[in-house]
Amino acid sequence: MVVKSHKIHDVEMVEALKEARQKIFTEIRKVIIGQDQVIEELLISLLARGHCLLIGVPGLAKTLLISTLAKVLRLKFNRIQFTPDLMPSDITGTEIIEDDHSTGKKVFKFVKGPVFANIVLADEINRTPPKTQAALLQAMQEHEVTAAGTTYKLKEPFFVLATQNPIEQEGTYPLPEAQLDRFMFNLWVDYPSEQEEIQIVQYTTSAYSGQPQVVLDAEDITAFQDLVRRVPVATNVVDFAVKLVRMTRPNFDQSPKFVKDWIAWGAGPRASQYLILGAKTRCILDGRPTPEIEDIRAVAKPVLRHRLVTNFNAEAEGVDTIEIIERLLEKV
Rank of each mutant, 00 (worst) to 15 (best):
N118H: 08
I97K: 01
N165D: 12
M140V: 03
E98M: 12
V160T: 09
V214P: 03
V145A: 10
L137D: 10
I97H: 08
F116G: 08
V189M: 07
E170M: 05
G113S: 10
M184S: 02
A207K: 14
Y203C: 05
V111R: 06
A134H: 05
A117D: 06
T222Y: 14
H101L: 15
T94F: 05
I221V: 15
S209R: 13
E170D: 14
K155Q: 15
Q211T: 15
K109H: 11
A218P: 13
F183S: 01
F108K: 04
L121M: 09
D217M: 00
K109A: 05
K153Q: 15
Q138R: 02
P114N: 01
T128F: 07
T132Q: 00
K105Y: 12
S206V: 07
A117E: 09
V214I: 15
I125N: 01
D99Y: 08
V120T: 03
G171K: 02
Y208D: 13
P212A: 02
Q195T: 13
F183W: 01
G104P: 12
K105F: 13
L187M: 07
K112S: 14
Q195M: 13
P192R: 02
P212G: 03
I125Q: 00
D181G: 06
Y208V: 11
A135Y: 01
Q169D: 14
A122T: 03
S206T: 10
R127Q: 07
T94L: 09
I97N: 12
L86I: 03
P174G: 05
Q164F: 03
E156D: 14
F159V: 02
T205M: 14
L175Q: 03
S193M: 00
P88Q: 02
A122V: 09
Y203A: 14
E95C: 14
E168V: 01
I125W: 04
A139S: 12
L137E: 08
D99I: 13
D90H: 08
D99V: 11
F82R: 02
Y152I: 11
L137M: 10
I167F: 06
I91M: 05
M184E: 07
Q199E: 15
M140N: 03
D181N: 08
T146Q: 09
G104A: 10
I198A: 13
E170Q: 10
A135P: 11
A135D: 05
P192M: 06
I198G: 05
T150C: 09
T205Y: 09
T204I: 09
E196R: 01
K153N: 14
Q195L: 14
E144T: 12
T163D: 06
Q141W: 02
Q211S: 15
M140P: 04
N186F: 05
E124F: 07
E219S: 15
L137R: 00
L216A: 10
P176M: 08
T205G: 09
T128H: 04
K153D: 14
D99A: 13
N118C: 10
S89G: 01
D90T: 07
A162R: 05
I200W: 06
P166L: 00
T172C: 10
Q199P: 13
N186C: 08
D220V: 09
E194N: 12
K131W: 07
L136N: 06
K131I: 04
P130T: 08
K153R: 14
I96F: 04
A117T: 13
Q133V: 07
T204V: 09
K155D: 15
E98P: 01
E168A: 10
V145F: 03
F185L: 05
I198K: 10
P157W: 01
Q211E: 15
